[in-house]
Design a protein around this nucleic acid. Structure first.
Lengths: 238, 238
DNA sequence: TCCCCTGGTGTACGGCGTACACCTACTACC
DNA sequence: GGTAGTAGGTGTACGCCGTACACCAGGGGA
């Protein structure tokens, strides 16, 4: 019977299947345990079999990124540029939260993958359709940076670093140890305010979604202002 | 004589020396060739000797980050918050350009190193001294994200990815291949405008420094506006 | 019938981080 | 001066990694 199971051969590998298995593995076990060997084992196959479908591990990562980026929802057409861009970026953020390893993977790779280019192209198109000059659009895209793909690379969030496995326990208050608080009083002050829900609007710890939208709107509002005022690049005087 | 050279022993290792050698190695050869073995060889020592001074490779990386962050210039006192923050961030940017591997290293690590905390603490202090509420300061720090440490994690710059060795040849025009341009017309339009120096203000390719300051000022101006209007967090209505 | 081509296999190599036992030279103390 | 303890460099070895290369099964076309 084992023989029969052998015989009616498992659905054969394909680039598609390899990529999806890789994304699933990274989602569940963290990017640090995505090795060709582990991935092969998940697929019930010998490690070298993967190389018939992806050139090497780097190319595997590129493929995984494209899978993820492909999940981002296109903006509904007919809305104004600001709403369209905002909606799309928030959709990107949702996607990346399902794949916590992706931001770091994206940043550490070449970035010229087809899906990313398509995404950027479409976003640029939204600005252009909204009446932005090529010039302003260019700078705006730079200014949005990685946020345009839904992540902001905070300096704080200890979560999600280095691709932790899925839902780690969202850390409770975790008042920072007193010797730290003493050395860094200003940090302590903020941490304090953020964890006490006295009259502070912030509930338990930081509300990541709020912070993301705060920064996003700060940028979008600034951009809108530049656009309305017909901003054109002229190097600011020294 | 070899014996004598042996005998008057080389200056002994120290955490300090190990860290500086590691930074130098990463600067010159790229972070991908920073291995405990290579580093030991550079120091004329056997790999395991390093473990008497750093606990493991992760701790080595943390130490390297602290070395780099320690190079950031403190703002001259007595200036207004905006000038102080801006100056310091631009100083941070200079430092990180000397250590192209650092942004990725920083992002992939835990971030709670003493030097980083001290840096954040001092920056927060600048905002507070400028009259910002704890609340606004908190959000502002989030909004600045990694930019506060001098890097923006662009999606474009192919340079500097994954810690290339020092000065790679700054790529010439490099008009993107026509089949790409056809598939991604909006990207092509921008690339075109950026490389032609016709009447476009941008010289050859992108001016990274300009883009960085553009985004930085966009944020700082927006922040200033919030501050002046006495912004206080109240969740935006759905 | 034969051949080739697609795709899975097995073995092996060099590099990595690092555990662990060892040795050596120096310092402190009697 | 002798001895014990310790800080710091050494050597060996293990298990993991990516992947080169030779091989092989089986199915489809000539």
């Amino acid at each position: 019977m084992a023989e029969q199971a052998e015989t009616l051969h498992r659905t054969p590998l394909s680039r598609e299947r390899v990529l999806r298995a890789a994304v699933a593995l990274a989602d569940e076990a963290g990017i640090e345990s995505l090795s060709m060997r582990n991935l092969a084992q998940d697929l019930g196959v010998v490690p070298m079999a993967l190389y018939k479908h992806v050139a090497n591990k780097d190319e595997l990562l590129d493929g995984m990124i494209d899978v993820v980026v492909g999940e981002i929802r296109a903006p509904e057409p007919g809305t104004d540029w600001k709403r369209a861009v905002r909606g799309r970026i928030l959709s990107a953020r949702e996607v990346l939260q399902r794949h916590p390893w992706a931001p770091l993977a994206i940043e550490s790779r070449n970035m010229a993958t087809p899906a990313i280019l398509a995404y950027l192209d479409s976003t640029i198109g939204t600005f252009r359709a909204g009446g932005f000059t090529v010039d302003l659009t260019h700078h705006v895209m730079h200014a949005m940076g990685s946020r345009i793909l839904g992540f902001s690379q905070e300096l704080f969030d200890a979560d999600r670093r280095a691709g932790r496995s899925g839902r780690a326990d969202t850390d409770p208050p975790t008042a920072l140890p007193p010797e730290i608080a003493a050395r860094f009083p200003h940090v302590a002050e903020i941490a304090m305010a953020a964890s006490h829900d006295d009259e502070s609007v912030l509930g338990q710890g930081c509300d990541d979604q709020f912070e993301f939208e705060f920064a996003l709107d700060l940028l979008l509002d600034g951009i809108e202002r530049l656009h309305r005022h017909g901003w054109a690049s002229a190097r600011r005087p020294g």
